[in-house]
Design a protein around this nucleic acid. Structure first.
Lengths: 325, 325
DNA sequence: TGGACTAATGCTCATATGTGCAGATCAGAC
DNA sequence: GTCTGATCTGCACATATGAGCATTAGTCCA
């Protein structure tokens, strides 16, 4: 070709010009070629090079990009079905207010996810502050479900109500589903009492419904002083101390597990009323929510135990999990 | 469609995710659609929206982009064939050193342009500091030319040499062309003397060759104290003052023009030895170089007069021309 | 509730872009 | 000079993307 340039001559200017024509003026490579007297192939290749040599930069600049990255990494690393990460400005600091912010933020994005996924059939739900925040944000008709089932014991033993009913009601009214309550405490005094409760037809049927529900949505709790699980009186002060001593990192639907997701204290577990953890493993959608400071270990334990296939959490917790998983 | 989202739900997250898959992981829209359970059309449209809503930003980040913009504007605004703008850091300040920088920078990019354009046949050239800088940078074999012709009178009248011969030699040796000198001063004492010179066969033939050359390359000068045109003694101090007084903004191949590109002082013009300006208008390639402070007006005059179809200049001059054109 | 209006969806077809390959071109060694 | 290996170029073909349009779904209002 006659117009060929000597080797070594830099075509930076040419690439800049082509890049502007292509990306800014939206000309086709062929049009650019005509105007500049180049073949469209050369234009295409220079465009490639402009990208490789960072003459042109393509960036996803939206602030959510960081969060989507975290989600992607969680999914890749742990083989999750999906991950949903909420942004909680670090400026909020620590303490109860920050945790409230985190719960609301996680609830928000979890609802977005659920709304997009639209789980059908029965949905098993737990209770807790994050679940309450989530339930309150569910818009009418976010999905059509047949039945909302409580997944673990929810009647309070103390003056502090669990709000479990509000949660179930909200799920039911927004989806048009019927409800099935688990009229029992989360943890009873003895294994024998737990067995006896299992004989009750109402409780047995609810548990069976929770077991067959294709969807479960529940919070991941930690044994902190302000946990409603503890405030509700299901676990005594001594038991709390013991749990911490033997390495329990938190609870999943009322069952305390260690860092690997194994039952931390079998004796206590036998006193827990609700779906066994193993039944979570086969659910098409098993979503765990971990919002607030110190939730990293229980989130990781839930993942390692295979109890969840969707994790909804805040950015700090997501980062912790990725750093320690 | 079953999975359709409620209106009003923001798909920002989705767009971010898609944008990352498309631009960062280089997946096709179809692949993204498969993975996310969307049609490729939806993916494509969300990608569009991501661009429009600035979730994705595509920038030409190379520093030359600014210069290419100036070039583009010059071409668009004035109908030039091309413009070549060199970057001269403003930090260099003003004064002779800054002008030297500008000349070298403009010479550099002008050579790049010429190398790409590869003019064939005869090339008519002027002299001056910018032309010298350009000539010295011409690489061997940058084009093949038949003849290098001096476009205006070049023999010095003072102790200061014009370096015109070095310029012509460099053009000739790098292109393999023969040379044709214009053995006369740029400006002589009287119109009659100019006429007499025109009778000389050597001079007449050189001027004819310059006239028929398809290419002309020349500097655009200003009547400043350090101009070699003035230093070479072609124009007296009185004449310089007169030129400034009647609004001459500079010279093109030795002929002084006003801001519109019209001959500023016809009597002086009739004493100038060289190609008439009108002959420049029909050349396929007529390149004017304007490098250094204060060159805006003469660059604009050359454009307005239609004497050049390619302008090579520095960024400051380009900006001035665009601001005042 | 029903009906009109608007926006979103997926389709077909046209256009634009990317890829592997064969020939051309060039720098550098001799 | 001339040979050689590496790069660059253009082409034919496969793939990916974009545009117009009919259809559907969703919203708003009576």
């Amino acid at each position: 070709m006659q117009a060929a340039r000597r080797r070594g001559t830099s075509d930076t200017r040419l690439m800049v010009r082509i890049a502007q024509m292509y990306y800014r003026m939206n000309l086709s490579q062929e049009q650019i070629g005509e105007r500049l007297g180049l073949s469209r192939f050369r234009v295409g290749r220079l465009l490639d090079r402009a990208l490789r040599e960072e003459i042109v930069r393509i960036e996803v600049v939206h602030p959510d990009a960081r969060l989507v990255d975290l989600e992607e990494q969680l999914v890749q690393r742990f083989g999750l079905n999906a991950a949903v990460v909420a942004d909680v400005p670090a400026a909020a600091g620590a303490g109860p207010e920050a945790d409230d912010l985190a719960r609301n933020a996680v609830a928000e994005v979890a609802v977005d996810y659920l709304q997009a996924r639209r789980p059908a059939g029965a949905i098993a739900v737990s209770w807790g502050r994050t679940m309450l925040a989530l339930a309150r944000r569910l818009p009418d008709g976010w999905t059509q479900a047949t039945e909302i089932v409580q997944i673990n014991g929810a009647t309070s033993r103390s003056a502090q109500p669990t709000r479990a009913n509000e949660i179930v009601d909200r799920f039911a009214t927004t989806t048009g589903a019927s409800i099935r309550l688990l009229a029992a405490p989360a943890i009873v005094g003895t294994p024998e009492l737990r067995s006896a409760l299992g004989e009750d037809p109402g409780i047995r049927e609810t548990l069976a419904a929770a077991r067959s529900a294709p969807t479960a949505i529940f919070g991941l709790g930690i044994p902190a002083a302000d946990s409603p699980h503890l405030e509700s009186g299901f676990v005594s002060g001594d038991e709390q101390a013991r749990l911490r001593a033997i390495g329990a990192v938190g609870d999943i639907i009322g069952r305390f597990v260690d860092g690997e997701g194994r039952i931390a204290w079998p004796m206590l577990d036998e006193r827990s009323v609700g779906l066994p953890l193993d039944d979570l493993r086969v659910k098409p959608l098993s979503m765990g929510l971990a919002a607030g400071a110190g939730r990293g270990p229980i989130a990781l334990a839930a993942i390692r135990g295979g109890y969840i296939n969707v994790l909804a959490t805040d950015d700090a917790t997501a980062a912790w999990v990725l750093a320690h998983g």
